[in-house]
Design a protein around this nucleic acid. Structure first.
Lengths: 194, 194
DNA sequence: TTACAGAAAATGAACGTTCATTCTTTTTTA
DNA sequence: TAAAAAAGAATGAACGTTCATTTTCTGTAA
């Protein structure tokens, strides 16, 4: 009840400020005072919503990761054939990285640094389960290569990072045809050759 | 003359300590005092070799990146046909990420965070030029897809990050066959379909 | 070869600043 | 009006960097 009275807007403002500042300066170069200022809040107020700085970044990570995966799986359901399922998930992930590039950058930073607790990292991985399940099904059906999930992810999903880069530079315009081509490359990396 | 007397061993020890500590804790969570201790040197001594902490990490980045690309291009020469050239480079990069996984982790962290100066980042990219030249040649010959270098890199080289991961977990043994398969996936992502 | 003087290199302690967090007080809410 | 929420100032620890001093090195004269 007490907690419920605390404004959800303020919490969101803190999460968003964290994402933006950490993207620009990195976690340890982002002081609590700056986060507070950007969220229009006193530094002390942060501690009403989060235990400490580490907790703030852990929670931010989990929240962004949850948004990411919710977006990724929004148009997918488990009755789809493997190839179709992979396609809709891949397309949604591409869309997310294009539209929510700040969120995507934040996740990339979290995934490549010791910034996040191991526990939160594990928690974040859980949200990807539907994709891992799809791959397991694909392997059983002989449609997907029998290699580790790390490798499948590295070859089909990680490459989408280029969407954030080109997004930020604005150098290359990305039309539907290019994206379709990228999808074909991703799919042919993980499907079994016939 | 003065500078030459300063021990190159000490400089190396500082660079190596930086890599190891930054890999474990992140740049801003790694105090100069800890780097000094690991290199068996006084904190003040660091400032005889580097201007400041930022300079230390910039120089470390450039040095590691130079090692990486030197390794990558060691067996390549420009007279090779495009496909062959790409193959030898790709294989060397895979080897590097397996054998020098600490260096590879460090580079991944630098490439995904605001830890490095923009100038040093640019400097690091320069070392990749032979690969970009190879791709340019490949595009001209119609062997390589006419897409941005970012995209080629994202689809053929970035996925090798899974080597560091599986390396660290030790969960999946990686035999020659798997690696060859990974190479085929990389190549077919960037070659033009016939 | 030894002794030694001057310079370079290295050191540990100290300084000033920054930052996460807490404390006390004020404001808002119900 | 009492309890919750928020605020700003205060606190203490940690850090990057510098300073004053000591140690090590190098070349030369006995």
């Amino acid at each position: 009840m007490a907690a419920l009275q605390k404004s959800i807007d303020k919490r969101n403002a803190l999460i968003n400020a964290t994402i933006e500042l950490v993207n620009n300066d990195g976690f340890h170069a982002t002081p609590m005072s700056k986060i507070a200022k950007m969220a229009c809040v006193s530094p002390a107020t942060i501690y009403l919503y989060f235990e400490n700085k580490q907790d703030l970044v852990n929670k931010t990570y989990i929240e962004v990761k949850a948004n990411y995966t919710a977006y990724a799986f929004a148009t997918y359901d488990e009755t789809m054939p493997v190839e179709k399922g992979f396609k809709v998930i891949w397309k949604r992930i591409a869309e997310f990285k294009l539209k929510e590039s700040a969120d995507a950058m934040f996740l990339a930073q979290c995934d490549n640094t010791p910034m996040i607790d191991e526990a939160s990292r594990q928690e974040g991985i859980k949200h990807l389960q539907p994709l891992l399940d799809l791959w397991a099904r694909g392997k059983k059906e002989g449609v997907i290569k029998p290699v580790s999930d790390y490798m499948l992810y590295a070859y089909s999903i990680n490459p989408l990072s280029f969407l954030m880069i080109t997004q930020n530079r604005g150098s290359v315009k990305l039309d539907k045809e290019h994206l379709d081509q990228a999808y074909e490359a991703a799919w042919s990396s993980i499907k079994t050759c016939k």
